[in-house]
Amino acid sequence: MASASPDSKTGHSRPPDWVPVERRWWGLDRLTLRPALIVVAFALVAHFGVPAIDAALPNDDETSAGDRMLLKKGVSFVAAPGWNIESGIVEGDEPISGSLPRTTVLTSGEVSFTVTVGDFDGDLRGLMEQLEKTTDATNGSDGFHITSDAYGIRSADGEDGLLARYSSIDADGALAVFLHDGTGAQVTSTGPAGTDEDVVEQVAAMILSVEFGEEESA
């Protein structure tokens, strides 16, 4: 078993899995970020490569009108009705013990909607630029990339954000970011080109419903 090592500045012991601040980004060790994102990329390929299987599965955990999805750091958003909850917690169904998730995933047919929260000590533009660099470095030429300039948006509760097109050779989508008091929310939605306009409007409404509230107590 690895033993704790002393901090050179404070003299206090550090846990064996301690990660220096300069190596952390979005709540993760930057040295392990690349393989993690590659796993996500493979998951996306699997999702879009087997739509027939997905369509055959029953959606037994669908969102209802007005459902608010809760995440860590006090972040939440209003889910469009009729979407399948792949992972996430609806307000009112919070666990008695344990914490809320950092990531929530909803799907509607071949369209996915993902919200991830984490710490970020830069500004909003810096967060979007970091995500662009990360996707360019980790996704192949056929994978998802930010493919447009980011432009300003504002959520329903007045939170400033940025939105950019996020696409691959055979799928399209959007990537949005919000930042509030050191907490970032990354919103990604992807689906096939020519997605139904009603679904696109639902995605837009969910993006603009992102809110930052008080973080849940431990």
Results as ranks from 00 to 15, higher is better:
residue 51 P to L: 05
residue 106 L to H: 08
residue 208 L to P: 11
residue 171 A to P: 00
residue 81 P to S: 13
residue 23 R to H: 14
residue 216 E to N: 09
residue 128 M to G: 11
residue 15 P to S: 04
residue 62 E to P: 06
residue 52 A to N: 02
residue 31 L to P: 04
residue 76 S to F: 12
residue 70 L to P: 07
residue 157 D to L: 04
residue 82 G to H: 10
residue 42 F to G: 10
residue 25 W to N: 00
residue 171 A to R: 07
residue 141 S to G: 03
residue 23 R to I: 09
residue 64 S to Q: 15
residue 181 D to W: 03
residue 211 E to T: 14
residue 60 D to N: 06
residue 81 P to T: 07
residue 210 V to Q: 07
residue 52 A to L: 02
residue 198 D to F: 12
residue 128 M to H: 12
residue 16 P to M: 09
residue 13 S to E: 00
residue 29 D to I: 13
residue 141 S to P: 07
residue 178 F to L: 06
residue 32 T to F: 04
residue 156 A to Q: 15
residue 26 W to D: 11
residue 20 P to S: 03
residue 192 P to G: 01
residue 56 A to V: 00
residue 103 T to Y: 09
residue 208 L to W: 15
residue 30 R to T: 06
residue 125 R to C: 01
residue 57 L to R: 09
residue 28 L to R: 08
residue 44 L to K: 12
residue 19 V to C: 06
residue 178 F to S: 01
residue 106 L to F: 12
residue 216 E to P: 08
residue 185 A to M: 01
residue 55 A to R: 12
residue 192 P to R: 13
residue 19 V to L: 10
residue 126 G to I: 10
residue 180 H to E: 11
residue 204 A to M: 12
residue 116 T to P: 05
residue 44 L to H: 13
residue 115 V to M: 07
residue 212 F to I: 10
residue 71 L to E: 08
residue 100 L to Q: 06
residue 33 L to M: 14
residue 157 D to S: 10
residue 193 A to C: 06
residue 196 D to R: 07
residue 165 R to N: 11
residue 73 K to E: 09
residue 174 A to D: 03
residue 117 V to S: 06
residue 207 I to D: 04
residue 30 R to P: 00
residue 110 E to I: 01
residue 195 T to A: 13
residue 143 G to I: 06
residue 63 T to I: 00
residue 210 V to W: 05
residue 54 D to E: 10
residue 71 L to M: 05
residue 71 L to N: 05
residue 46 A to V: 13
residue 4 A to C: 13
residue 100 L to C: 07
residue 157 D to R: 12
residue 190 T to M: 03
residue 142 D to T: 08
residue 20 P to G: 05
residue 100 L to G: 02
residue 68 R to W: 12
residue 98 G to A: 03
residue 99 S to W: 02
residue 120 F to T: 06
residue 117 V to M: 10
residue 108 S to Q: 12
residue 145 H to I: 01
residue 161 G to D: 08
